[in-house]
Amino acid sequence: MRALGRALRRPASAIGFAMVALWVVCAIFAPWLAPYDPLKSQVPLQMPFERAPDGGVFWLGTDLLGRDILSRLIYGARTVVFWAGVAASSAYIVGITGGLCAGFYRGITDRVLSFLANVVLSFPVLVLYILIIVTLGASGLNIVLAVTFASAPAIFRIVRALSIDIASRDFVSAAITQGENAARIMLVDILPNATGPLVVDACLRLGYIAITIGTLGFLGLGLPPPTPDWGGMVNEGRGMAMVFPHLVVFPCIAISSLMLGLSLLADGLREASRAGAKA
């Protein structure tokens, strides 16, 4: 929290925070913010700023099926924030558990887990996602599964390295001598000391997961239609992008701004924790 406060004093990270906050607010309050129902067909292929039949305005135009693009973007924020959040949490639970065990117990546990992580990491990420989604079918839960499978090894490596370092400190030896049980040492003594780098990593990873969900949507492997999904919108509008660029440009701006916000925030947090360590 203190690091966040320090980070927000830098303009770049404040802008990043605002961008992320904007999409989170959109996600939470979508039904109140969106001017129309994101699934309701009205007038197809309207350009931005054109009048709607009920007297309102299609600020960003409508898509092939006559659905309001602004409303779909706002509801799309809900899709991406929710699924990226669930997927990231699941990946962190698996990665942290594995990393703590490997770093604390070392020996055979460490070797087996590290080997498994190496196996997964020898796939190009996207190839892994496509293989999993094509085998299991496209759905929100399968995206969570694929993201967990593909990201947990990288998180595992970070946590493992951190906990090996922390486990060699005196207070951990003291805890072991006191006879505290292993789970308590890992969760109470080791994990809290590893949170700094993990928070920075989480910011970036959340962004990459959002990009992944978008990319899968773009490849036609994301959440099944008619769910409003930014990547899916790009995929649907691609055929007509040469004539109606507004179909694809706005969803792309949405996903890029979310990722940019998270990157700027991650940068600010990293700088702030470095400055905090020096002071």
């Binding site: 990009i211 978008g214 990547g231 790009v234 440009v249 792309c252 890029s256 940019l260 990157s263 940068d267």
Partner: peptide, 18 residues
């Protein structure tokens, strides 16, 4: 560097094509 890395490939493909 942060900016260009934040734009996913399919989005920059859309922007550049546009």
């Amino acid at each position: 560097a942060v900016g260009t890395t934040s734009v996913p490939e399919f989005a920059s493909a859309v922007f550049l094509s546009a």
